[in-house]
Write a protein that binds this DNA or RNA. Structure first.
Length: 588
RNA sequence: GCGCCCGUAGCUCAGCUGGAUAGAGCACCUGACUUCUAAUCAGGUGGUCGCAGGUUCGAACCCUGCCGGGCGUGCCA
């Protein structure tokens, strides 16, 4: 029997009991879970009924419980204080849930919550003048995680990367390379393309300290770029190409995928028509010096220091665009091109104000889709020494960190493979999966808005609330299932009524809750919810593992039942890890 | 000044959107490998949920005011 059907049966049973006892249907019934498994499998609070039936909740619970007879699936309904605790027969509970989960497999947790909803998730959005750092990794795994959650819940997701490929900062690395690069390339230098370009950006900064006048050359180059000077464009394309191939490598390692790339070199002129529309409508105003501004409502934006209303510039006095101009245009383009219902921007919290303005401006323009825009803001990633600062060289490079984590994982694997049975490839494969799991889980396990203090020492720990811990729980399940295949149990039928120990009940409960957790996580755009629940499942699996033998259980029907429970647990863990972008390993 | 975010055990965080005795991990003690992988498990120590009011049958959760920290705050991105 499907667990959803059991839940429905419980609700309808309680409803008809209310009908019999109080002569009316109850309103606002919610099915929940008791705090301890000994109390039952499901619970219904009677608080909301108190008003309706004009009695205290405990009496109502008593009355309803007395009205209910056991059924084929419902074993007992007991009133405990204001709660109605429901015990479902173990054969129904375990049998139904395990069958269902194993049958669903990969598609477990899929729902139609977002049916017909088209959502764009823009994330990562790097500059092409230097390599990615730890902050980008948080952005990337969050963007990817959210995309997977939306996809799993039936949304049509378009993952977009808005590349900042133009501007002074890009010209700086171009200029430095042209002056001192001696036609070197990433290939001849043996350096990954994005790092190579990043070195020239650093070189520029060094030279600028000695010769501040090169700033003027940068400005000249920027103007040449804007006027489409073929030589400058060629250099720009070549160097950006190096960066892209470098980025692609890092994306691949992190499992980041994109359906659409937007380049600011294409979008930076967008938005001017919207500014004109705003002027025509009277939403924006042109001030004396020629700049176009918007006045921001005081109730949402507060005031300036001097108490006057806040103002945002939309066009400079010389008529050129500012950043928010193109963002307005790009926002519209996204909706036009993809018929979006929602547009999510995964961008750090330092840009909260920017997005608050952007969305308000879209609203002031009267664009009805403005309310579909959402800034998924995430906190900074700090180091134990404080904030990452490029000028102080404290930025943690993404590729370096990944490499370091893989190495640490490899050391650990070698350490536990004393006899040296594992091939180098196998060690490498496992180290990669484990190292990345450690990084991703560490960055996803807390709510996005929280600042993370990235302690390298702590992040490499595989104890406790970590990705590797969850992977290990899976590997243990896989190991049992592998061994089970070598035993002849095909003719044995599982007897789920033999299950019911505390650990088994806790485990099945965690498995039952998984689809609900996926929906909540998608609703809240919070992969951290998946991390928390996944850890609960992994922890419960480990507790069960220690206390109750599977293959050495008392009888073959019990063995089969426990195998089914382990199998279902493995499916849930694998799916949860997949939603976080983490690989599972059959052996660790 | 103003806006947004954060404040729960020594540290890092959960807390199902207002319900049963506030939970995990780390750290620190004490135990468990001839038994499906000890990257594990069991037990112990540890709380004025920043403070003060308010709403409610019921508040860590909602409202108000403070305090502390972070990020921002019109022609940068």
């Amino acid at each position: 029997m499907l667990i959803d059907n059991v839940k429905t049966e419980i609700l309808t049973t309680v409803e008809s009991a209310c009908q019999n006892r109080f002569g009316q249907k109850p309103e606002g019934l919610k099915l929940g879970y008791p705090p301890q498994v000994e109390l039952g499998d499901f619970t219904i609070e009677c608080f909301p009924l108190a008003k309706q039936f004009r009695q205290n909740p405990a009496q109502i619970a008593q009355a309803i419980a007395a009205e209910i007879e056991p059924s084929e699936s419902i074993q007992a309904v007991r009133a405990v204080g204001p709660y109605l605790n429901v015990k479902v027969y173990n054969r129904t509970l375990f049998g139904g849930v395990c069958d269902e989960i194993v049958r669903q497999g990969e598609s477990l947790g899929r729902s139609n919550m977002g049916q017909g909803q088209r959502v764009m998730v823009e994330y990562l959005s790097p500059n092409t003048n230097k390599p990615l750092h730890l902050g980008h990794i948080r952005n990337g795994v969050l963007g990817m995680g959210v995309s997977k959650l939306l996809d799993a819940t039936g949304h049509t997701v378009i993952k977009a990367n808005l590349v900042n490929d133009r501007g002074v900062h890009i010209c700086k690395s171009m200029l430095a390379w042209r002056k001192w690069g001696n036609r070197e390339t990433p290939e001849t230098a043996g350096i990954k393309g994005d790092h190579f370009v990043g070195e020239w950006y650093v070189r520029y900064a060094q030279e600028e300290e000695k010769h501040p006048d090169i700033e003027q050359e940068t400005q000249i180059m920027l103007r040449k770029w804007e006027s489409g000077d073929p030589e400058t464009r060629k250099l720009w394309e070549m160097m950006n190409g190096w960066v892209y191939s470098g980025f692609a490598e890092t994306y691949q390692k992190l499992g980041l995928e994109f359906d659409a790339f937007y380049y600011e070199s294409h979008t930076y002129n967008l938005g001017k028509d919207l500014i004109q529309t705003g002027l025509d409508k009277g939403a924006f105003v042109k001030v004396a010096d020629g700049a176009v501004i918007a006045k921001l409502p005081v109730d949402e934006f507060g005031t300036q220091r001097d108490g006057s209303q806040k103002v945002e510039t939309l066009l400079r006095s010389d008529g050129t665009s500012v950043y928010i101009t193109q963002d307005l245009g790009t926002a519209k383009m996204k909706f036009d091109e993809h018929q979006l219902n929602r547009s999510i921007y995964v961008v750090g919290s330092e840009q909260n104000y920017h997005f608050q303005c952007l969305f308000k401006l879209l609203d002031m323009l009267g664009l009805e889709w403005a309310s579909g825009c959402y800034h998924l803001s995430y906190g900074m990633v700090n180091l134990p020494e404080g904030r990452m600062k490029s000028r102080e060289g404290t930025v943690i490079d993404a590729d370096d960190l990944i490499e370091e984590m893989i190495q640490l994982a490899a050391d650990e694997i070698r350490g536990r493979d004393a006899e040296g049975r594992l091939s180098d490839e196998e060690i490498q494969k496992r180290a990669f999966a484990i190292g990345l799991s450690a990084i991703k889980f560490y960055l996803l396990r807390v709510r996005p808005e929280l600042t993370i203090n990235f302690d390298p020492k702590e992040s490499i720990s595989f104890d406790g609330f970590t990705g590797p811990y969850c992977q290990y729980a899976y590997a243990r399940c896989a190991s049992i299932l592998r061994r089970a295949e070598t035993e002849d149990l095909t003719s044995v039928e599982p007897d789920f009524s033999l299950l019911g120990h505390e650990e088994e009940l806790q485990l099945i409960r965690a498995l039952i809750q998984f689809p609900e957790v996926v929906e909540e996580a998608a609703r809240d755009l919070s992969p951290a919810r998946i991390c928390n629940h996944l850890f609960t499942v992994a922890q419960t699996v480990n507790q069960f593992y220690h206390k109750h033998p599977v293959l050495a259980a008392e009888s073959p029907p019990l063995i089969k039942a426990r195998l089914a429970l382990i199998n279902a647990s493995a499916v849930v863990i694998k799916k949860a890890l997949a939603l976080l972008g983490i690989e599972t390993l059959e052996e660790m």
